[in-house]
């Protein structure tokens, strides 16, 4: 009898394993956040997040399907079952943890204020009063402005590219966004004439502990597999190799 149950269990396990292999894991990213995730000239999704996602899939030995999703609907889309995981530089925050589960952080960046070189704006509550600051809608940086610089006027943009366009156009006194992303932008031709003001802001209670991979609350099995795969690629050097493709500094979080 026990043997029979055991074989049945093994068969059932085998079938779930088979099912997991047959169905590709559907991963969403934004595709508008270079160099973390973006669409290249041939229409392919590329970037640090995308490479990490691919490395995780290779580590878990499953097939993956990575698609681009608009940022402000990316969590509702996950909970609606349109995809199974979000690898999109999403910061782990208490508010988001109420809606989804996160793996351990896979990188840590912090926020910076970027403004024209000749501006004397600083990331301090008083200096920010009355300044028009651009920020991406639904990002942790919007919360940072609300809580740390309540007297600044916030303009909400659908993508970071759009707030940078308006920074160049002179509609904004500054933008607050992720440090690595902005330092890359500052090195590009577009970023000429702009600089980071003051120190990078870490603010873990607002900005979170770093970027994690979001999965549905009930998907604990996938969460464990992703966490294990993250540990593996950070240990076996895959992470470092991907990191070096995009950045000169290591983004690997302290574990």
């Amino acid at each position: 009898m026990t043997i029979k149950i055991l074989t049945l269990t093994i068969a059932a396990l085998g079938m779930t394993a088979f099912a997991a292999q047959a169905d590709p894991l559907r991963i969403a990213t934004e595709g508008a956040y270079p160099p973390f995730n973006f669409v290249d000239s041939s229409g392919e999704l590329q970037g640090f997040d995308v490479d990490i996602a691919r490395a995780l899939c290779a580590e878990m030995e499953i097939e993956c399907e990575i698609t681009a999703q608009a940022w402000d609907g990316i969590i509702p889309g996950l909970n609606a079952g349109r995809y199974d995981a979000i690898v999109a530089s999403m910061s782990i925050t208490p508010a988001r943890l109420e809606a989804v589960n996160f793996t351990q952080p896979y990188y840590q960046a912090g926020a910076v204020l970027v403004a024209p070189v000749d501006s004397n704006i600083m990331p301090e509550a008083e200096a920010m009063a009355g300044q028009i600051i651009g920020v991406q809608r639904a990002s942790t940086y919007a919360n940072l402005i609300d809580q740390r610089f309540p007297d600044a006027t916030t303009r909400l943009y659908d993508t970071v590219e759009n707030h940078n366009l308006d920074l160049i156009a002179g509609r904004l006194d500054g933008v607050i966004a992720q440090r690595i992303f902005m330092s890359n932008w500052l090195e590009s031709d577009e970023g000429a004439g702009f600089e980071m003001k003051g120190e990078a802001m870490l603010e873990p209670e607002i900005l979170g502990l770093g970027a994690g991979i979001a999965v549905r609350k009930d998907d604990t099995d996938l969460l464990e597999r992703l966490d294990a795969a993250l540990d593996a690629i950070m240990d076996n050097g895959t992470y470092a190799e991907i990191n070096d493709r995009y950045f000169t500094v290591s983004l690997m979080p302290a574990r």
Binding site: D72, G73, R96, A138
Partner: peptide
């Protein structure tokens, strides 16, 4: 869109 981006209740 702004409110639902904070509370994740777009419906």
């Amino acid at each position: 869109r702004t409110i639902s981006s904070v509370n994740y209740m777009p419906v």
